[in-house]
Write a protein that binds this DNA or RNA. Structure first.
Lengths: 244, 244
DNA sequence: GTGCTCTTGTGAACGCCGTTAACTACCCCG
DNA sequence: CGGGGTAGTTAACGGCGTTCACAAGAGCAC
């Protein structure tokens, strides 16, 4: 069955434990507490041993980011499972609400993944960076695919999209198409034009803005209960995009 | 003239140097490099001496945040000075563009001020936290005040605002009114209703979202040139808000 | 089974860091 | 001129990431 030798299994197990402990420290005490020595201490080993698994602390943190994203994706996916498959708008709402709930419940992880200055490295199509987000981005895209496949008019006339953006947005559109068809949803190019990609981008901007403001407490006034504020914004968002 | 004794002047001067050096380190090497020992080293003194000025590193960072905000406010204000006073839309655009430019030019400062998990402390009306943002928030509000005083219809029917938000938004509205009249602009309560406050909030959400996404490189696709993307979003924003 | 190699871990060490405590030089006021 | 408060020092503690030399042990060839 498992072709892995015992060495390999041991190694994988230790690796899991390391990331698990790192994650626990991140959640309980914030990113600054994710310390090689602390992790090692919890695992009953010494700090230098960790260098057999990661080349540096930064390297470990990078993998942690990926783990966090995967978990977020799984979280969103499971929230989706309970829903009626044909309720596309409901799925969109569920994903948005799930994203917010997760961000508020895991502010440290959110900060790590979504609010850390982008590494100087270039954004190349198949980079680790993109793989990272894909595990949760895929959920967004899958849901978007279902909605689009049903002909819901999430769109905007292509000619309204500024010329300078067309090239980038076309690439985004193609990427979307690929991801969506890969996830088993059939969709035609006529349902996913540049205008649609543009609207989806704006959707993301507003959702991200709202959630980040909430996590960072940067609203311009004291908010007694941010839940209805989010719901209100979400309703506007869904309406502005033509989903209702 | 200056009633300050020599001791006091010396102290203030050293304090300025400390913050200046801290700032330089922040800009050149990021927040992690803002180290008491590094600052002291640059200043030719020893680290413990800094404790005569700040009770801890975190305390210093806190003051640094305020400095950064003040500078941002000054930056935005100076950008406004060159403009025709009657060109209200132009002023709005200038502030938004200025905010973006500043954020991209100072990603570390942006992260420090706008994307650090909100301290557990409660958001109280006259806290240091609010004072911090005020130095730059005031610019936004002043410009908003000018626009509103001219009767431009940045608004939305009050009855469209969800009931649960009215209380918070009313407080925000009152705060806005106060700030705006303090800045010398005369404005009536009829021009600044709850609906207007709501729209301004949404404006901030979208602007912040766009800028943060840009700074953190979290767009869902590779962006070859983010400037036109921002301009496009800004145009939509201004249009959606009724300014044109 | 015996011996070799490669992997995984240890311990000591280096140079950073924040922070505290005891101590010193010096300015200012009476 | 002398005492008190202020701004600085040095020394030290514990924690950090990281490197290096070294030991224990698994896995494999024979």
């Amino acid at each position: 069955m498992t072709q892995a030798t015992r060495r390999e299994r041991d190694r994988a197990a230790t690796d899991r434990e390391i990331r698990q402990q790192a994650r626990a420290l991140l959640v309980s005490d914030g990113p600054a507490a994710v310390t090689l020595r602390a992790i090692a201490r919890e695992l009953g080993i010494t700090a230098p041993a960790l260098y057999r698994y990661y080349s540096s602390r930064e390297d470990l943190i990078e993998h942690l980011r990926a783990d966090v994203c995967a978990d977020l994706g799984a979280d969103l996916g499971s929230g989706l499972a309970d829903l009626d498959e044909s309720d596309h708008v409901g799925q969109v709402l569920a994903v948005c609400r799930g994203f917010r709930r997760w961000a508020l419940a895991h502010p440290q992880e959110f900060t790590l993944v979504f609010a850390s200055p982008s590494p100087p490295g270039v954004y190349c199509p198949v980079s680790a960076q993109e793989q990272v987000r894909d595990s949760f981005g895929r959920i967004f895209l899958t849901v978007a695919g279902r909605v689009l496949a049903n002909g819901l008019p999430i769109t905007r006339p292509d000619h309204e999209v500024p010329d300078v953006l067309v090239a980038d947005l076309t690439r985004f559109r193609d990427d979307l198409l690929l991801t969506i068809t890969e996830s088993g949803v059939d969709i035609g190019a006529d349902q996913l034009g540049v205008g649609t990609a543009y609207v989806m981008l704006q959707f993301w901007v507003r959702l991200y803005g709202q959630v980040a403001l909430e996590v960072f407490g940067q609203f311009p006034f004291p908010v007694t209960d941010s839940q209805p504020l989010f719901e209100s914004m979400l309703a506007d968002l869904v309406r502005d995009v033509g989903l209702d």
